[in-house]
Simulated scan of single mutants.
Amino acid sequence: MAKELVLISHGKMAEGVKESCELIMGPQDHVHTVCLLPEEGPEDFQKKFNDEISKYDLKDVDVFCDLMGGTPANVVSRLIMGGEKVHLVAGMNLPMVISWINAQMVGQDSDYVAAAKQGTVDINQYLANMGK
């Protein structure tokens, strides 16, 4: 059984990351999004998140969020502290999601946190150091 990935964010960042990922990797049936919209509060987000994860076996759910300490991360953190078996990682970016998908495709574990960090590069500095 494949794992499920739920991308959560302030605004529609999660949807944008999924769309960008699918542009590169093709359609992703195991990647889902839950977005906190400006007119919503924590209770609204929690209901949408609960509705989404109720479809899956929680031991097979990873959650990537945009920002540690924000409402989406805090809502899911409270669920984890309440005993839910969801795996939450903050600092979502496109390399992280692609690493997760690649690992699922080949049936291996991924260090998607390392992929997220490696995806952050100061290109100007990199180019300046190329000739050295």
Results as ranks from 00 to 15, higher is better:
residue 120 T to Y: 01
residue 106 V to L: 02
residue 9 S to N: 04
residue 40 E to R: 15
residue 62 D to I: 03
residue 46 Q to A: 13
residue 74 N to R: 12
residue 108 Q to R: 11
residue 105 M to C: 06
residue 27 P to F: 12
residue 71 T to F: 12
residue 117 K to T: 04
residue 101 I to Y: 13
residue 47 K to M: 09
residue 116 A to L: 03
residue 13 M to W: 03
residue 73 A to Y: 04
residue 128 A to Q: 14
residue 99 S to Y: 00
residue 1 M to S: 13
residue 103 A to C: 06
residue 111 D to Y: 03
residue 27 P to Y: 07
residue 19 E to P: 00
residue 47 K to T: 10
residue 117 K to A: 11
residue 35 C to E: 15
residue 91 G to S: 07
residue 110 S to L: 13
residue 131 G to W: 00
residue 113 V to Q: 05
residue 79 L to T: 01
residue 116 A to F: 04
residue 88 L to W: 11
residue 17 V to N: 06
residue 102 N to Q: 06
residue 22 E to P: 09
residue 38 P to V: 09
residue 65 C to N: 09
residue 97 V to M: 07
residue 9 S to M: 08
residue 44 D to R: 09
residue 106 V to A: 07
residue 26 G to N: 14
residue 97 V to E: 07
residue 132 K to G: 04
residue 108 Q to M: 10
residue 98 I to Y: 01
residue 31 V to R: 14
residue 28 Q to Y: 06
residue 19 E to H: 08
residue 99 S to G: 13
residue 87 H to I: 05
residue 116 A to M: 07
residue 11 G to L: 08
residue 101 I to Q: 12
residue 14 A to Y: 14
residue 28 Q to K: 14
residue 73 A to K: 07
residue 105 M to K: 15
residue 22 E to L: 15
residue 27 P to H: 12
residue 117 K to H: 10
residue 131 G to S: 10
residue 31 V to C: 13
residue 29 D to L: 12
residue 93 N to H: 03
residue 70 G to S: 05
residue 21 C to E: 12
residue 127 L to Y: 05
residue 106 V to G: 03
residue 48 K to S: 09
residue 34 V to Y: 11
residue 59 K to Y: 08
residue 116 A to G: 11
residue 25 M to Q: 14
residue 124 N to I: 00
residue 21 C to S: 15
residue 132 K to A: 06
residue 44 D to I: 00
residue 111 D to F: 02
residue 96 M to E: 08
residue 30 H to M: 14
residue 21 C to Y: 07
residue 93 N to Q: 02
residue 65 C to P: 00
residue 76 V to N: 06
residue 98 I to F: 00
residue 4 E to H: 14
residue 107 G to Y: 14
residue 109 D to I: 05
residue 90 A to E: 00
residue 57 D to M: 10
residue 72 P to W: 15
residue 85 K to D: 12
residue 27 P to M: 14
residue 50 N to T: 11
residue 37 L to T: 08
residue 4 E to K: 15
residue 68 M to F: 10
residue 86 V to R: 02
residue 129 N to L: 10
residue 80 I to L: 03
residue 48 K to F: 09
residue 5 L to C: 14
residue 82 G to P: 01
residue 129 N to E: 08
residue 9 S to H: 04
residue 52 E to L: 08
residue 16 G to P: 02
residue 76 V to F: 02
residue 52 E to Q: 12
residue 42 P to V: 15
residue 1 M to I: 11
